[in-house]
């Protein structure tokens, strides 16, 4: 039950996308998100769709994994569509009933908003599915490197992020285990009203927090024992180096962005 939660779920496969430098993937994802908000015509969406579909095909990740993330935003998506559909004033009224009306503009905005949101989620899923959380934080650390000059603790933040990500599955498993142990002692996590339910979580949360603190303590000790002292002068086991395919990928993304901007200006 508890394993169904996906958070930065990495899907192992052997594709060019998996091999790309995480920095390239981060920049591409951000560019894609920006492009989505630049687009305001059908032609633009066709270009974005072609880009997204080819990236998905290249990733070799089964399609169902891509749309899994959509479940979480389904409600927001529906609300956005409904509000845009009925509440956008427009020139031509298409459907009119009771106090509600659907205008041509409303229909257009609703569809565009829906596509935008879906592409946003699917686009970022492609990145998280093809990049391990560790690579991702590595990439982020390097990309945000210049901020170090402004005394932003980039390395520390990246380290915290990768540790947090690393611990999510462990804590989920731990939750599962403690839950089972308490159910075996007759605990009931399902029935009762809200207050009773909240109270029934105490036997789960107390051991969980204790175990989280214990693990944090152990990890800190293990890091100190190996002389960890922050980012200063620290080398990487797998330093990020751009290869030819990374430059090609950058080129492709630039062309994509250029096309999107051109479409926006021309149309």
């Amino acid at each position: 039950m508890i394993r169904d939660i996906t958070l930065g779920q990495y899907y192992p496969a052997d594709s060019i996308l998996h091999k790309l430098d995480p920095r390239v993937k981060l920049v591409t994802t951000i560019s894609f998100l920006v492009a989505l908000f630049l687009v305001n015509s059908w032609v633009g969406y066709v270009v974005a769709t072609i880009f997204l579909v080819s990236v998905i095909r290249l990733s070799k990740v089964p399609f169902p994994f891509m749309v899994r993330g959509l479940k979480a935003i389904f409600l927001i998506l529906m609300i956005t569509v409904v509000f845009n559909l009925f509440l956008t004033p427009g020139d031509r009224v298409l459907v009119h009933f009771w106090k509600l009306q659907i205008t041509d503009k409303g229909l257009r905005t609703a569809i565009f908003m829906a596509i935008r949101l879906v592409y946003l989620i699917v686009g970022s899923s492609v990145m998280t599915l093809t990049t391990t959380p560790n690579d991702l934080t590595d990439g982020m650390e390097r990309l945000l490197g210049p901020l170090k000059k402004l005394h932003v603790p980039v390395h520390e933040v990246a380290m915290m992020m990768s540790i947090a990500l690393r611990f999510i599955p462990i804590l989920l498993e731990e939750t599962d285990k403690i839950m089972k142990a308490q159910i075996a002692r007759g605990a009931d996590f399902e029935s009762g009203n809200l207050l009773q339910k909240a109270k029934s979580l105490v036997p789960l949360l107390v051991p969980l927090f204790i175990s989280a603190f214990r693990r944090a303590n152990d990890l800190a000790m293990a890091m100190e024992a190996r002389c960890y002292r922050g980012g200063e002068g620290r080398t990487k086991m797998k330093p990020l180096v751009y290869a030819r395919r990374d430059y090609l990928a950058y080129g492709t993304v630039m062309i994509f962005l250029a096309v999107i901007i051109a479409v926006r200006i021309v149309l």
Binding site: K177, A181, R185, D188, V206, P207, S211
Partner: peptide, 30 residues
């Protein structure tokens, strides 16, 4: 589950009450 008691691996990880007696009471109270 009350007739077939299961003690998990590292059962001490499931302790949560303020004192030992209350923790042991958790099962019978349920």
């Amino acid at each position: 589950r009350s007739r077939v008691g299961l003690v998990f691996q590292y059962p001490e990880h499931q302790l949560f009450e303020v004192d030992v007696l209350s923790d042991v009471c958790f099962g019978p109270k349920n």
